[in-house]
Design a protein around this nucleic acid. Structure first.
Lengths: 182, 182
DNA sequence: GTCTATAAAAAGATAGAC
DNA sequence: GTCTATCTTTTTATAGAC
């Protein structure tokens, strides 16, 4: 229970971090092993191939998304506002995993691309009951995607583009213009 | 004037196409030369290094963005709706260049990342006079980014996620909720 | 301007010692 | 479970013929 993170977890952490900081090309097995403080042989004991390493990060992402869906479903501010607002919190394990897998997908990994589609559907299902129609749902999802896409670019190029109060205002706007009922 | 596309342009076309279809990893100089129907030596006459090839695609993107800013500024449906709607037209030269450069950025190219930031600012400047405030501007830009991000994923993973009428509805919604005046 | 051939470096993967 | 050493393949880049 209080077991410290195994080497396996350190490797996965390092892989996600390099993907986020330096892009897909930099995330080689060699660089990952070095960043994790293990040898290439050590890494290869846990992940026999690059595909296995990528699959493990995808699996980690799935678990974290399950947790996130659970959390935003119970958020007091409402599902829509919570979903939009938490699209921007750089620094959570979920963000690192999601940015990392997105980079893998855009590098050309079919498994990563498929996983991202399934994940998007999970979020869509959680949000759908809380918006007025499919166009409103599309708006919510796209704003969130846009926030992630910006993070995806900013992670390597420049600073963050929105502070917390800007994000609150945006989340409130999106909630208001998509709310059902009225 | 009626000069057919030079080998240089064919190479650039092929490079953008592979980036879009198969991801950054697949877009090697070798694969690009093959797809363009030239030898590696032929490619290297025009682009001595991979960096030079990437820089040329970035430069092409800048030119196409200049044209796009010009066009949406004169669109009868209004700048906001035109901007959102044209974020989704897979198949234009602008889209191929933008998707390609986005993939380069996420592969780790700093030049591509910087260029995308400058381009985003150009679009923001074009849209700003037509929305009520900075939060509304952010909404417009993020929806557009979200559409591109979805294309970025869908290009390798699955089919398109919005048909034309859905997109029209979305563009109208975004325009209405961000319009100045009222 | 375009080609072939080849060098040089980097990436993924294997073998086997400890 | 982690290491070093090595092999293979891929990718970038060079040299020089045509």
């Amino acid at each position: 229970m209080s077991r410290p993170p195994h080497a396996r977890e350190s490797v996965l952490d390092a892989f996600a971090q390099i993907l986020m900081d330096d892009g897909e090309r930099a995330a080689t097995m060699d660089a990952t092993a070095r960043a994790a403080g293990v040898s290439k042989g050590g890494l290869l004991y846990h992940f026999a191939t690059k595909d296995a390493l990528e699959a493990a990060l995808i699996e980690r992402l799935r678990v974290l998304v399950d947790q996130d869906v659970e959390e935003i479903s119970n958020a007091p501010e409402g599902v829509v506002a919570a979903y939009v607002r938490t699209s921007m919190m750089e620094g959570t394990a979920l963000d690192r995993a999601l940015l990392g897998v997105s980079r893998l997908a855009q590098g050309g990994s079919p498994a990563a691309g498929t996983a991202l589609h399934e994940i998007r559907e999970r979020w869509a299902d959680a949000v759908r009951p809380h918006v007025r129609d499919e166009t409103a749902l599309r708006l919510v999802l796209l704003v969130s995607d846009g926030l992630y896409f910006n993070n995806l670019l900013d992670a390597t190029a420049s600073g963050p583009l929105a502070d917390s109060s800007e994000l609150d205002a945006l989340a409130a706007l999106v909630r208001d213009v998509t709310a059902p009922g009225d």
